[in-house]
């Protein structure tokens, strides 16, 4: 049922999966060409290095570069920021205090101020700053 829905929505993507992989390889080839042209240039050496990196990345070590490329494409499109948002908002539900850090910060600051461990750490930091300023 799920695969049928995916096929209906995305135009038979599961049957044309090899085509998607070919497209992904071409996109990575474009990234490689762009990187070599910027850093080395488009001359004889550049073409040789493009072909070498292209062969290694797209054929010989594709089992390694394929997943890395997918993670890279997800990272540059901002999925990592989304994951961070999910983590921080989970903190909102699991902290038991009913607030994000800073939103109801008065209670949190008071808790830190009353904690002797935090007080001692802050005193150490303050003394270090004073010493630096005296120099």
């Amino acid at each position: 049922m799920g695969s049928l829905l995916i096929n209906l929505l995305f135009g038979g993507v599961l049957e044309k999966f090899n085509l998607v992989i070919l497209g992904l390889k071409l996109v990575i080839l474009i990234f490689i060409v762009g990187w070599v042209r910027v850093h080395i240039g488009g001359g004889r050496w550049g073409t040789f290095i493009m072909l070498l990196i292209g062969y290694l990345a797209l054929f010989k070590y594709w089992f390694l570069t394929g997943p890395i490329a997918i993670i890279y494409l997800l990272a540059i499109s901002g999925i990592t920021g989304l994951a961070m948002d999910v983590v921080f908002t989970r903190q909102y539900y699991t902290s038991g205090k009913g607030g994000l850090a800073g939103m109801e910060g008065g209670e949190r600051d008071a808790e830190y101020a009353n904690n002797p461990a935090f007080g001692a750490q802050n005193q150490i930091k303050a003394n270090a700053i004073k010493r630096i300023l005296k120099r």
């Binding site: 995305f10 993507v13 085509l19 998607v20 497209g23 071409l26 499109s77 989304l82 948002d85």
Partner: peptide, 29 residues
């Protein structure tokens, strides 16, 4: 590949890229 054979996939990827990249998804979360 991406425009003639699989336009649905491209549209979904494009929309995901904009929704995530422009911070709309973070705003909703």
């Amino acid at each position: 590949i991406f425009v003639i054979a699989l336009p649905g996939l491209t549209a979904a990827l494009w929309a995901t890229y904009y929704v995530v990249g422009m911070g709309l998804a973070s705003m909703f979360i």
